[in-house]
């Protein structure tokens, strides 16, 4: 159960710690019950996501041993390039797996596409879809500048995964553009680190209320939006502005239509 929840969380948030906990829990399940189709399927999925193809195959063959009529598994095995399996492959060590999971987290994307893995356990289809959200960088950049002109907003910035500035805005009362981007990079790193160490998953938002001005940082996929503002704006209204902005530029047309 814990393994399944952690795999779901890894799919949704790409936090390595979830993958490591999931793998550990699922390994224990297959040690106790080597015939557990569910545990083998989840382990295979984890290995696929981090790019451990041989281990993914090994566990899918165990699934096939229990469910020989699983056509989608056979098709997937053919797709990843192997017809036979000798059954003697070495287990990936936990440390090696943790290294692969961390690399995935740092890259912000899976090695194996989540949506191509056979849906053996009727996963939450949304989680897979969310892993490949549409991003309209140009629209987002335009909207960042527009939000920057709202009364009370002193600085806004949009950063990519590596901290590169994609769009920014500063008014006369704000920090210099360079300083603000630097502050947001540092705060993002601290907030990310704290969330992960607390095992609270991926950072969604950080808010700092200070007499000299308030700050909001929002993480969406691999992007970070930062805003420095003061009266008449408050943290909740800025959060609404930024939610509106991300919904417009980081959603598929279908999702926007549903919204």
């Amino acid at each position: 159960m814990q393994g399944e929840i952690r795999v779901e969380r890894f799919l949704r948030d790409v936090v390595a710690q979830d993958a490591v906990h999931a793998e550990h829990a699922l390994r224990r399940v297959v040690q106790i019950n080597s015939g557990s189709v569910k545990a083998h399927a989840l382990l295979a999925e984890l290995y696929h996501l981090v790019g451990a193809v041989a281990d993914c195959r090994r566990h899918l063959h165990r699934v096939l041993a229990e469910k020989p009529d699983a056509d989608d598994v056979q098709a997937f095995l053919a797709r990843i390039g192997e017809g036979t399996w000798d059954g003697e492959l070495e287990d990936l060590t936990s440390d090696a797996f943790a290294t692969l999971a961390r690399a995935v987290e740092e890259a912000g994307d899976f090695v194996g596409a989540p949506e191509v893995f056979p849906d053996l356990l009727c996963h939450d289809a949304d989680a897979r879809r969310r892993a490949r959200l549409h991003v309209d960088i140009d629209g987002l950049s335009r909207d960042i500048a527009r939000v920057g002109q709202t009364a009370g907003v002193r600085n806004t910035v949009l950063l990519d995964r590596d901290g590169k500035v994609l769009a920014e805005h500063a008014d006369d009362a704000g920090l210099s553009r360079r300083d603000f981007a630097h502050v947001i990079r540092q705060l993002r790193s601290t907030a990310d680190d704290t969330s992960r160490r607390m095992d609270a998953g991926a950072l969604v938002r950080a808010e700092i209320e200070s007499p000299a001005g308030d700050l909001t940082i929002v993480r969406v996929q691999r992007l970070t939006v930062g805003a420095l503002y003061s009266e008449p704006l408050r943290a909740d209204s800025v959060w609404e502005l930024l939610q509106d902005l991300t919904a417009r530029n980081l959603s598929t047309p279908t999702e926007v239509a549903h919204a």
Binding site: R9, A191, G201, R205, A206, I208, E209, S210, A212, G213
Partner: peptide, 14 residues
């Protein structure tokens, strides 16, 4: 900006 009154961290699981 360092004399802040409140810091809120919202993560996906807490």
């Amino acid at each position: 900006l360092h004399t802040f009154n409140r810091l809120t961290l919202v993560a996906s699981h807490g």
